[in-house]
Simulated scan of single mutants.
Amino acid sequence: MERPLPISPYAEPFYADATPTGADGQRIGVLLSHGFTGSPASMVPWGKHLAGLGYGVAVPRLPGHGTTWQELNKCRWADWYGEVQRAFDKLGANCDQVVVGGLSMGAGLVLQLAADRGRDVAGIVVVNPAVHTQRKDVLALPVLQHVVGSFPGIANDIKKPDVEEHGYTRTPLKAARSMMLGWKQVRADLPKVTSPLLMFRSAEDHVVDPSSGRIILASVSSRDLTERILEHSYHVATLDNDASVILEESADFVRRVTGT
């Protein structure tokens, strides 16, 4: 039996219990999912901000993350989605309403959750969501994944100096291929998404191209739909110059959609 790999101290998940908020004393939960090859470190400051407002918060560590890229290469979309589902169900068991949020691949995961869980999701906040790519080199992934273990990493696309995402320096190709296959299902199910949606998108992003945002905005059935362009951040905007914008406006969004 293989011994579990040690987890980076920066990749520890974060959880906080909800306290009653609003005139009716509701308990509100927020699930935040990090992205591909990243770690909870990219979401914990956001989660701590919301926890400080009394919300229950779950920032899970997706399988294969925070250890080694080789371990991530053994994981698949179903593993990551399963972890997000478990975190959502745990929040739902202790909260009256749950809002979901995600960065990059994490945004794709929570959009799938919103499509599957319908009215159980009170609202959705996505940051530089990834559900599609225009890169032509990914067309070779079905073959390359059996020949090459990894490509150079995509971590630390951050405009703010001296900020570290604590992601992998390599991109595992089998896992990347699985992620992109998962995107197909997300895109097919986007019309099922009806929850209020707030999208933050960086004007300059070197990891995810604008096609994902366009597809999401054109496909979801949400009537309450807002896109916010971030002018001073790159891909990992949750740690970048516009982080305060995300924290403050997402908190306002949670209050509004939950009626608290």
Rank of each mutant, 00 (worst) to 15 (best):
A23W: 01
G102M: 13
L230F: 13
A122D: 06
Y10C: 08
P40S: 04
S212Q: 06
G167R: 04
V127H: 14
G149V: 03
A155Y: 00
T194H: 15
A243L: 12
R119S: 14
A130H: 14
R27G: 01
A41F: 07
L239T: 11
K48I: 13
R170P: 04
R177S: 14
P152M: 03
I7M: 08
P161Y: 01
M199K: 09
H166G: 00
V207R: 04
L247D: 08
S221A: 12
T68Y: 10
V131D: 04
Q185L: 11
H166V: 03
A176E: 10
T226I: 08
D96W: 02
S244P: 01
L62T: 07
L72V: 03
M179R: 03
Q26V: 12
N241G: 06
R187N: 14
D162I: 00
A122I: 05
Y81F: 13
D205Q: 02
R187L: 08
K74C: 08
S42I: 13
V121A: 08
K184Q: 14
D157W: 05
Q134M: 09
V84L: 07
Q97V: 06
I7C: 07
A237W: 09
P172C: 03
V148W: 07
V127R: 14
R214M: 09
P40I: 00
V143G: 02
F151T: 11
P196Y: 05
G182H: 05
R187K: 15
G153W: 06
L32P: 12
W183T: 12
K90W: 11
P210Y: 00
F14N: 03
Q145V: 04
D116I: 04
A243Y: 09
G56F: 01
M179A: 14
V110P: 04
V193K: 15
R214C: 01
L109K: 08
R86E: 14
N73R: 01
E2I: 13
Y55D: 00
N73L: 04
G118H: 08
D189S: 13
I216V: 07
V59W: 07
E12K: 12
G64Q: 03
I216L: 04
V138L: 15
W77M: 11
H65V: 06
R170K: 15
M179K: 02
S244Y: 13
H232A: 12
P196T: 05
F14M: 01
H65D: 03
Q85S: 07
E83A: 12
W80E: 08
Q85L: 09
D240H: 06
K192S: 13
S221P: 15
L141T: 09
V236N: 09
P20S: 12
R228S: 12
P191L: 03
Y55W: 15
I28P: 00
T171N: 13
Q70A: 10
P6M: 06
R177V: 07
R228I: 09
T238R: 14
V131E: 05
L32Y: 11
D120K: 11
E204F: 04
A58V: 02
D162V: 01
Y15N: 15
D24C: 05
R256D: 12
I154E: 14
W183M: 12
D116F: 10
S244A: 15
I246C: 09
I246T: 08
P4D: 02
H132A: 15
R117Y: 13
A114H: 09
Y81V: 05
L181S: 11
E248Y: 09
Q85T: 09
M199Y: 10
